[in-house]
Amino acid sequence: MSDSELVILAKENRNYFGVLYERYFDLIFRFIFKRVGGDEESSGDLTQQTFLKAMSSIEKYEDRGFPFSSWLYRIAQNEVNLFFRSTKNEISIEIEDRQIHHLLEEANLGSYMSESDQEKLIHQLNTLPDDSKDLIELRFFQELSFKEIADIYSITEANAKMRIYRVLEKMNKNWNV
């Protein structure tokens, strides 16, 4: 059964939401797990919270041609951001070496970086505004495609690309300052 068919059924009977839950739980858990730096307990709670919000507002869901998962990603994204704002502890998000290299190439900062330059880059990432951080995280650390990012924000793929490249351009400009 397709997602759209299940959504129609779930609007009438919430038990059908269980199929969507089974279908997307792992995906959303993995997404949140990476975003909260591998904190298992918080990932479990936030995933459950995401599905609770989705289940209680399924009536408002409109099929606008985006995949159902992008709606769940959007709710999860909001939940994670609320969590970041509410928590007093610093959440450390680890970035792998190859992810840094991908970011370097896309930002035209070269393909090799010394350790001190890498530290500088990390510092620059940490000083970005939250919405820019989100975009960089989704593209380079969650490794989502432009299409997937566009679906989450309900924008066109070209627009998603433009927003990300604007952040990279800003990073590039600030690099030599």
Binding site: F29, R30, F33, K34, G37, G38, E40, S43, F84, T87, K88, N89, E90, I91, S92, I93, E94, I95, E96, D97, R98, I100, Q118, E119, I122, L125, N126, K133
Partner: peptide
């Protein structure tokens, strides 16, 4: 508050099926 750090171990952080 989130803070990016460099993972020098090059190990992928993925949850297990059990988790």
């Amino acid at each position: 508050m989130r803070k990016f750090t460099l993972n020098k171990e090059a190990k992928k952080k993925e949850p297990t099926k059990e988790q």
